[in-house]
């Protein structure tokens, strides 16, 4: 554990809390993509199967359970809880995530896992872990698309996405730190490439976020 990873994890937890708070305060789901959180739930459920097989630390286990429960709670709130449920506009949140996210990531994960480990080293848990790394890298896409459609970004929504992006950026710093200060460090290029891709997806958002904070004006995205 280092300061960057801890800050990254905290930023992630904070973003989830901000979103839950935002849903409860505003009592609507305008500008929020439930599909992004469904993708994150798939990511967490496929990655954290090692909760049953390996114990790393109490911190690690608690955070994993927290991510799963809080993400499920976001989905439940938007899809099933009134009055929020009736404000959720399905037609705006129409990213075809099975075709454009889950299926391609499953294929890519199968190919890279088989190349990496061969038939003999094949492990279903490993395969799902690789799949979750790929899927996480694009899980924010439905949210960014919804944002683009609404164009005007509500304050807390902007903050929730900002902390989500900050979390990914801090993880890159964490890898740089680990590579420099840990003995027997091993590079993992799939993790790096997906992590960088995921962070790059936020760059455009960050640009307009900081611009609006600086001007103190309303946060709107260009057409």
């Amino acid at each position: 554990m280092n300061i960057f990873r801890l800050a990254g994890d905290m930023s992630h937890v904070f973003s989830i809390l901000v979103l839950l708070l935002r849903l409860r305060v505003a009592k609507n789901a305008q500008g929020i993509s439930v599909r992004t959180h469904e993708l994150f739930l798939i990511v967490f459920l496929t990655r954290y199967l090692d909760l049953f097989t390996t114990f790393y630390s109490l911190y690690n286990s608690i955070m994993k359970i927290l991510y799963i429960v809080s993400t499920a709670s976001i989905i439940y709130t938007i899809k099933f809880q009134e009055p929020i449920k009736s404000t959720y506009d399905k037609s705006q949140d129409s990213f075809l995530y099975w075709q454009f996210a889950v299926a391609p990531c499953a294929v890519l994960a199968s190919v890279t896992h088989l190349i990496g480990s061969g038939i003999s080293g094949f492990s279903f848990i490993e395969l799902l872990w690789t799949f979750s790394i790929y899927l996480e890298s694009i899980a924010i896409l439905p949210q960014l698309i919804v944002l683009q459609r609404y164009r005007e970004v509500e304050n807390l929504t902007g903050n929730y996405i900002f902390f989500m992006g900050a979390y990914r950026f801090l993880y890159i710093l964490n890898w740089i730190y680990r590579a420099n200060f840990e003995a027997h460090y091993q590079h993992h290029w799939v993790v790096y490439i997906c992590g960088v891709l995921q962070t790059l997806l936020y760059v455009d958002f960050f640009y307009y976020y900081f611009k609006s904070k600086k001007s103190g004006g309303r946060f709107t995205l260009p057409t």
Binding site: R5, D9, H12, D50, T54, Y56, S57, N60, M63, K64, Y67, E126, W129, Y171, N174, Q186, H188, V191
Partner: peptide
Amino acid sequence: IDDLYFKDEL
């Protein structure tokens, strides 16, 4: 077992 390396991350 080397594969465990990155799995202590979330």
